[in-house]
C-alpha cells in the first residue's frame, strides 16, 4: 500500500500508505521546485533567451525543463555499478528500483546517461549542450518560431565550434551529441506519462 515516487529528486521516494496522494505529491513538489527554478535561472543566462517573448520562454521551459534536468543529473546514474544516487544522498541499486516499480523508463535513463557520460564533455560544453536541449524542445505553442530557430542555430553553431576546436581529430562527437536530442524527447514523453499516471492513479 506504500506510495512510490522513485524520482532521484524526491527526498522521500517511498511514502507510507497512510499519507494521502496529495500530501505525497506536495512533498515531492517541494523537492523538484528548486531544481525547476534553477533551470529557469539557467535559461535566463542563455544569450538571446530573454529576447524571446515571455510566452515563448514559458513554452520552451514547459517542454524542456525535464530534459535539461536529465542532462544535468545524469551523473547520478552509475551505469557501472547499476545504481542511482538520489539527491537525498541515498543510493538505490537497480534491483531495488525495479522492486519499486521502475521499469523501462529507468533502463532508458541508464542508457542515456551511459551514452552521454562516455562522451566526456567539459562543464562548459555540457552547459552549451543544455542550452541547445532547451531551445530544441517541442515547438507546440511557440508563437515566434523563427526567433526560436535562429537562437537554436546560433547555439548549435557555438556548440559545434567549441567541440570541434577542442577535438580537431574527432569529427564524430558533435553529430553523436545531436543524436541524443531525440533520445531526450522520448525520455521526456515517457517521464510525463509516468508522473501523470501517479497523479491519476497513485
Amino acid at each position: 500500500g506504500a506510495k512510490v515516487l522513485a524520482c532521484p529528486l524526491n527526498a522521500c521516494p517511498v511514502a507510507p500508505a497512510s499519507r494521502s496522494s496529495q500530501e505525497v505529491w506536495d512533498s515531492f513538489s517541494q523537492c523538484f521546485t528548486p531544481a525547476v527554478r534553477e533551470v529557469v535561472e539557467f535559461a535566463k543566462s542563455i544569450p538571446g533567451f530573454q529576447s524571446l517573448s515571455q510566452h515563448d520562454q514559458v513554452m520552451l521551459l514547459k517542454s524542456g525543463t525535464f530534459q535539461v534536468l536529465m542532462v544535468r543529473f545524469c551523473s547520478l546514474f552509475d551505469a557501472k555499478e547499476r545504481a542511482v544516487t538520489f539527491l537525498n544522498g541515498q543510493t538505490y541499486s537497480l534491483a531495488s528500483l525495479r522492486a519499486l516499480g521502475m521499469g523501462s523508463l529507468l533502463d532508458a535513463m541508464f542508457d542515456f546517461s551511459e551514452k552521454l557520460g562516455s562522451m566526456g564533455l567539459e562543464p562548459d560544453e555540457m552547459a552549451l549542450f543544455m542550452a541547445v536541449v532547451l531551445v530544441s524542445a517541442d515547438r507546440s505553442g511557440i508563437v515566434d518560431v523563427g526567433a526560436v530557430e535562429q537562437l537554436q542555430e546560433n547555439l548549435i553553431k557555438a556548440l559545434r565550434s567549441l567541440i570541434t576546436s577542442r577535438r580537431p581529430d574527432d569529427s564524430t562527437l558533435f553529430p553523436k551529441l545531436l543524436l541524443r536530442l531525440p533520445d531526450l524527447r522520448t525520455l521526456n514523453n515517457h517521464h510525463s506519462d509516468k508522473l501523470l499516471a501517479f497523479r491519476i492513479d497513485p
Binding site: 513538489s29 521546485t33 525547476v36 527554478r37 529557469v40 535561472e41 535566463k44 515571455q54 520562454q57 514559458v58 521551459l61 514547459k62 517542454s63 525543463t65 510525463s192 508522473l195 501523470l196 497523479r199 491519476i200
Partner: peptide, 27 residues
C-alpha cells in the same frame, strides 16, 4: 490531462520564476 506541464504544476513554477525576475527588474 492533455498538457502534462500544467497538470504537474510545472507551468506555475516556471511562470513565477520568470515573473519574479521581471518584478526584481522593475524594482
Amino acid at each position: 490531462f492533455n498538457d502534462p506541464a500544467n497538470n504537474l504544476g510545472l507551468e506555475d513554477i516556471i511562470r513565477k520564476a520568470l515573473m519574479g525576475n521581471l518584478e526584481e527588474r522593475q524594482e
